[in-house]
Amino acid sequence: MTTHTRLLDAADTVLRSGGRGPWPRTTAFLLRKALESCMCDFWHRAQLGVERCRMRTQMLCLARYADESTARRVSGAWAALSAACHYHGYELNPTAGELRALHDEVRVLTERLGPVPPSL
């Protein structure tokens, strides 16, 4: 089981518990870390060394190594998760529905960026 799969499962567990406390931000942190871990694995396979660059640089490079749609979706998901990870006194925490949508999006993106299964 990959690191990003374990992080996605942990985020799902926290999201399902959805009780009191910092669960929305905890879920967002786990999801963002899962996406970043997947990107690191992707760059190890596609272009070694890029994983050491800032995440924004990695996302800009992604369009050249993956399809444009995936690159845009990664960028959007990472930006939304980054915003959800930071405390804003004037904004509400993300809702369970918003976090579930981000969870589903990160799961799809990790599948798109994962290793290509061997053909039979």
Results as ranks from 00 to 15, higher is better:
residue 12 D to S: 14
residue 12 D to K: 14
residue 12 D to Q: 15
residue 16 R to F: 13
residue 16 R to H: 13
residue 18 G to H: 15
residue 18 G to Y: 14
residue 18 G to S: 15
residue 18 G to W: 13
residue 18 G to K: 13
residue 19 G to L: 15
residue 20 R to A: 15
residue 21 G to L: 15
residue 22 P to R: 14
residue 22 P to G: 13
residue 23 W to L: 14
residue 23 W to C: 11
residue 23 W to T: 13
residue 23 W to D: 12
residue 24 P to R: 06
residue 24 P to Q: 07
residue 25 R to D: 07
residue 26 T to F: 11
residue 26 T to G: 12
residue 26 T to K: 07
residue 26 T to V: 15
residue 29 F to Y: 12
residue 30 L to E: 12
residue 31 L to A: 09
residue 32 R to W: 07
residue 32 R to N: 10
residue 32 R to K: 13
residue 33 K to P: 00
residue 34 A to E: 12
residue 34 A to L: 10
residue 34 A to H: 13
residue 35 L to F: 10
residue 36 E to C: 04
residue 36 E to I: 03
residue 37 S to F: 06
residue 38 C to S: 13
residue 39 M to F: 06
residue 40 C to Q: 10
residue 41 D to Y: 11
residue 42 F to I: 03
residue 47 Q to P: 00
residue 48 L to D: 01
residue 50 V to H: 03
residue 51 E to S: 06
residue 51 E to G: 02
residue 51 E to N: 03
residue 52 R to N: 01
residue 54 R to H: 04
residue 55 M to Y: 03
residue 56 R to M: 00
residue 58 Q to G: 01
residue 58 Q to R: 08
residue 59 M to L: 02
residue 59 M to C: 02
residue 59 M to W: 01
residue 61 C to D: 00
residue 62 L to H: 01
residue 64 R to Q: 02
residue 65 Y to N: 00
residue 66 A to L: 01
residue 66 A to W: 01
residue 66 A to K: 03
residue 68 E to Q: 02
residue 68 E to A: 05
residue 69 S to P: 00
residue 69 S to T: 09
residue 69 S to A: 08
residue 70 T to N: 05
residue 71 A to T: 01
residue 71 A to D: 00
residue 72 R to N: 07
residue 72 R to L: 06
residue 72 R to S: 08
residue 72 R to A: 08
residue 72 R to M: 04
residue 74 V to T: 08
residue 74 V to L: 04
residue 74 V to A: 10
residue 75 S to Q: 07
residue 75 S to Y: 02
residue 75 S to K: 06
residue 76 G to I: 01
residue 76 G to W: 04
residue 77 A to L: 05
residue 77 A to E: 07
residue 77 A to K: 10
residue 78 W to H: 12
residue 78 W to Y: 11
residue 78 W to A: 08
residue 79 A to T: 04
residue 81 L to N: 05
residue 83 A to Y: 06
residue 85 C to D: 03
residue 85 C to S: 12
residue 86 H to I: 06
residue 87 Y to G: 04
residue 87 Y to Q: 09
residue 87 Y to S: 08
residue 87 Y to P: 01
residue 88 H to C: 06
residue 88 H to I: 00
residue 89 G to V: 03
residue 92 L to K: 04
residue 93 N to R: 05
residue 96 A to D: 11
residue 97 G to V: 10
residue 97 G to I: 09
residue 97 G to F: 09
residue 99 L to K: 09
residue 100 R to N: 13
residue 100 R to H: 14
residue 102 L to Q: 15
residue 102 L to Y: 10
residue 102 L to F: 08
residue 102 L to G: 08
residue 105 E to A: 14
residue 107 R to L: 11
residue 108 V to A: 14
residue 109 L to F: 09
